[in-house]
Design a protein around this nucleic acid. Structure first.
Lengths: 181, 181
DNA sequence: CCCTTTTCACCTAGGTGGTAAGAT
DNA sequence: ATCTTACCACCTAGGTGAAAAGGG
């Protein structure tokens, strides 16, 4: 599924006439696997056997599962001129996440119940013939720690669910109050 | 609205490594305005005052209206390498037509009840600094006379309506028979 | 018990011709 | 009488969380 909220950046300082590729990838924050904290779960009235999913914190459940294929997502407008990228906010809203190791849609593969750090990369398309030699200097990575998250197959916290219902237009069918709240 | 059926071309003979822009425009076939032929109209049972729109031929109704702004539609993948364009059929399915002279969506403006000839243009993106000098030779136009049509605001021929209902996926709601027919 | 998968109603977004009302 | 406009139900295409079913 799509990552939501969407990763968005405002870019400054590019050469307006040069070509750039913009891409994202995801690296593990640690080598741990997480699980719900049953003791802190906020139970809601529900039929027996129904899953409550209202825990409010994470517990370490052991060592991380084997790493997933380290895929990369190119912004679909790549390559484009610096002027184009800087003109407005760049939005990675087409980026999709999956836990399916056999995925062949080119989606980013993550382990559920693991923590990830999104990374944003800018690659300058070097017009020189021997551009491979300059790969290192033509490449810049940006990390925003506030974008870290735990991958899940089902929401573990009711406030996250409510936040997404309130802010994602496609979830409008589940709203029962003003999205401004 | 979109032009349907869509103008599609298969391209051969480009330089696979060179950049090209692909575009379309529309030129009047003649300087005439057309109208329905009441004598040949195939009336269907309908309440009095309801419009029948089943004429089977066109009559000249006089001289053409003033020409519309001669807009151009660039294929949204432009510019792209020759290899990319030749890889598969190029489809102009995003091209939209309007009769609104004040249109500011960049759509192609046509006069209703006038005949038009779609044209397809290929522009080689010349990497030389003085490329303007070679504009003439870097430009090639293709005309397929079988794609001529009369612009309308409402269909004038029931067989056209049926053909579109049968072949356009978005008109599936009006189908009452097999689209294969 | 805890997590994952599948299916579903309900949305967004936008492309159809039908139809009634409007314009000339 | 002829053509145009505005609106509509009905599609395509695909993104939501809920809920039920499945798995270890």
């Amino acid at each position: 599924r799509r990552m939501f909220p969407t990763f968005q950046v405002k870019i400054f300082g590019m050469d307006p006439m040069a070509d750039y590729m913009l891409l994202m990838d995801f690296v593990p924050v640690d080598d741990k696997r997480y699980r719900q904290s049953p003791g802190l779960r906020l139970r809601v009235p529900s039929p027996p056997g129904r899953y409550a999913f209202h825990s409010s914190s994470w517990l370490v459940a052991g060592k991380a599962d084997p790493a997933t294929p380290g895929r990369v997502h190119y912004h679909p407008d790549s390559p484009a001129k610096g002027a184009q990228w800087m003109k407005q906010i760049v939005s990675f809203d087409k980026l999709k996440l999956t836990n399916n190791l056999l995925d062949d849609n080119g989606h980013i593969i993550l382990n559920s119940m693991h923590r990830y750090q999104p990374r944003f990369h800018v690659v300058y398309v070097d017009p020189r013939k021997d551009s491979e030699k300059y790969a290192e200097e033509n490449f810049k990575t940006f990390v925003f720690e506030e974008t870290r998250f735990t991958a899940v197959t089902a929401y573990q916290n009711h406030r996250i669910t409510q936040l997404k219902i309130a802010s994602n237009p496609f979830a409008k069918g589940f709203r029962d109050c003003d999205p401004e709240d």
